Simulated scan of single mutants.
Amino acid sequence: MSLADRLRAALAADHSPLLLPGDHFDFDPAVRGNPAAVLIAVTDRRVPGVILTQRTETLRRHAGQVAFPGGRIDPGDDGPVGAALREAQEEIALPPDIVDVVGVTDSYRTVTNYVVTPVIGVVPPDLRLTPSEAEVASVFEVPLDFLLDAANQREQVAEYQGRERHYYEILWQDRRIWGATAAMLVNLSRRLQWAV
C-alpha cells in the first residue's frame, strides 16, 4: 500500500480524537472567519518527511515563523485544495501536478480569525524547491514521525492581549514550530494515531 493510500485510510478511520479547534475556545460562531488553506506536503520516502518554510523577517505578519505553504482562499481557487496548491507553487515553486492530494483534514481557527483547512498531499522526495524571496527565507523538511510524536509536542503558556494563551511548540534542530502550525500538526497526529 502506498504512503498516500495509508494516509487516506488513516484519515477515513472511524474514531473521534480530541482536536484543538483554534487559538481561542470562545470564538463567536456567528462571526465568519476568513477562509484559508495550507499544504501539508509529505515526502514519499522510507522515512517520510513534511516540507515546512521559514518566513522572511520582512513580512508584516508572522515574520520569521515556521509555516506550511499556504494562505487565503481566493475567489478563483478551487476550494481549499486549489488554494493550497496555488500557494505552494507561489511560495516554494512546488508544481501542483506532482502532488498526490490525499484529502483535507480538520480546520483550525487562528487568533487572527482565519479558518485554515490543512490539505494533505504526498510529493516525491528530494525536490528542487525554490523559495519566493518576498515571503520565504528557507524551505526544510522534518521527519513525519518526529512531528507526530506527542513527546515532541510541548504545551506552552503565554499572555496575549491580556489573556492567558495555551499553545504548542515543536523544536526541531534550530527551528521552533509553534502556534497554528504546531496545533495543526498536533491535530494531524491525533487524527492519524500512528497509522503511517
Rank of each mutant, 00 (worst) to 15 (best):
V31Y: 05
R175L: 06
D97F: 10
Q156W: 05
A183W: 05
T112H: 13
G76A: 15
D145A: 12
L171T: 15
L192T: 11
M184K: 10
L148V: 03
A12L: 13
D145Q: 10
F27R: 12
V99T: 07
P80M: 00
Y160E: 15
P131L: 07
R109E: 01
R72D: 14
L52K: 03
R154K: 14
I40K: 03
A93Q: 11
A134F: 07
V136R: 00
E57A: 15
N152R: 12
G179W: 02
P75D: 08
E164I: 11
A88M: 04
L129R: 01
G64P: 09
Q54E: 13
L171A: 15
P48L: 08
T58S: 14
I40M: 10
T53S: 06
R190C: 02
V136S: 02
L185Y: 11
D149A: 09
V122D: 05
R175G: 00
V186F: 11
F25Y: 10
F27M: 09
P17M: 08
L19Q: 05
L7D: 02
R60V: 13
Y114V: 05
E87N: 04
Y168E: 04
V115P: 00
Y168W: 12
I40Y: 03
V101Q: 08
R190A: 01
N187Q: 12
E91F: 06
V104E: 14
R8H: 09
D145I: 07
Q156I: 14
T110Y: 00
E141K: 00
A36S: 15
M184E: 08
Y167D: 01
L18A: 15
F140R: 06
V50R: 07
D145S: 13
W178I: 04
R32V: 10
D5E: 15
T117C: 09
F146H: 13
P35C: 02
I92Q: 06
L11Y: 08
D77K: 01
Y167G: 04
I51D: 03
E159H: 11
M1A: 13
T53V: 12
V122F: 03
D5Y: 01
E159F: 11
L147C: 08
E169H: 12
D78H: 13
E159N: 13
A137N: 08
F25Q: 12
G121L: 07
V136Y: 01
G64R: 03
L59A: 12
L127T: 01
V119Y: 00
R32C: 09
V186Q: 07
A10E: 11
P17Y: 01
Q161S: 09
R176T: 09
I73D: 02
L144T: 08
D149M: 02
P80A: 15
L188Q: 04
A180Y: 10
L18K: 14
A36Q: 00
L185E: 04
W172E: 02
A93I: 01
I92P: 04
Q173E: 14
W194D: 15
P69D: 04
G76R: 12
D77C: 09
V47L: 13
E159Y: 10
Q161V: 09
D74C: 06
V102W: 03
A84R: 04
Q173P: 04
A151C: 05
L20S: 08
L127E: 07
A158N: 05
L20T: 10
F146L: 15
V115I: 10
L39F: 01
V42F: 06
I40V: 13
R60E: 15
L11F: 10
N113H: 12
H62E: 10
L20Y: 01
P143I: 10
L127A: 06
N113W: 01
R46S: 13
